[in-house]
């Protein structure tokens, strides 16, 4: 049984259907990529998992049905969503953002250790630890968003276009850290990206969404070999 399992999931905003029966599974300790053009439904897929849009079908996490539960309950069960646009708490300091990430944890000593781990992972954040998140650059905010998700010690991280709006070198640094996070902690991830080479630096398996349906899926190597994937998402 997969750690996270979507079966025939559909979702809509009001009357406009956006997802049409998506199915996939995510094993523990693995990272699954979701590629697709603008408007394909990648963000909506993540929102359906974290309970932010109503959906139908079946979504199971660790064997438990989570469809229909509220976002905060799903988060407490161990799914951390790093939303598109980062969603940091702008009026709170970097440290407070990290503490909010660890909100449901009680192990204070470990929390401090994990804050240290985050600051090692993202040295930029160490210098800005007391600044308000709204004063950070886009790249730093993305780092903070990822670090905050890690602070929850989730079993799954949902990552939505962490490279959006970043300079290529910054995006690369963010993804290097994400890969380190994944390999060192073994947390499972769903990585949504338009930049497939960045996604492939973390995931070993991916699917391609087209207008709300899964059009292709497979291991990284076979996807990278496909002409249509190379043309659309790998820039060549």
């Amino acid at each position: 049984m997969s750690l996270l399992e979507l079966e025939d999931v559909s979702a809509s905003y009001g009357y406009a259907p956006v997802l049409h029966g998506i199915s996939f599974g995510l094993e523990a300790n693995r990272a699954e990529g979701i590629l697709g053009a603008n408007g394909a439904g990648k963000t909506t897929t993540l929102r359906a998992i974290s309970g932010m849009v109503p959906a139908t079908g079946r979504i199971r996490f660790d064997g438990v049905d989570i469809l229909g539960k509220s976002p905060d309950r799903i988060a407490r069960m161990g799914i951390a969503h790093v939303p598109e646009g980062r969603g940091t708490l702008g009026g709170l300091s970097v440290r407070d953002n990290l503490r909010i990430g660890a909100y449901q944890r009680k192990d204070r000593k470990q929390i401090d250790e994990h804050i240290e781990f985050c600051l090692d992972l993202f040295p930029n954040l160490r210098e800005r630890i007391s600044s308000n998140a709204s004063a950070l650059s886009g790249g730093e905010q993305q780092m903070l968003a990822v670090a905050r998700a890690f602070m929850a010690q989730p079993r799954v991280i949902l990552l939505d276009e962490a490279s959006l709006g970043l300079a290529p070198s910054t995006a690369q640094r963010v993804y290097d850290a994400i890969r380190r996070l994944q390999t060192e902690t073994g947390v499972a991830m769903v990585v949504v990206e338009q930049n497939a080479s960045l996604a492939f630096s973390v995931v070993d398996h991916a699917l391609v969404l087209e207008t709300g349906r899964v059009s292709i899926e497979g291991p990284k190597e076979s996807l990278m070999g496909m002409d249509e994937v190379r043309r659309a998402y790998l820039g060549g």
Partner: peptide, 13 residues
């Protein structure tokens, strides 16, 4: 946190 951004706060549980 909730005053700052309730939706984002809910994503941290």
């Amino acid at each position: 946190a909730v005053a700052d951004n309730p939706q984002s706060a809910s994503l941290s549980g």
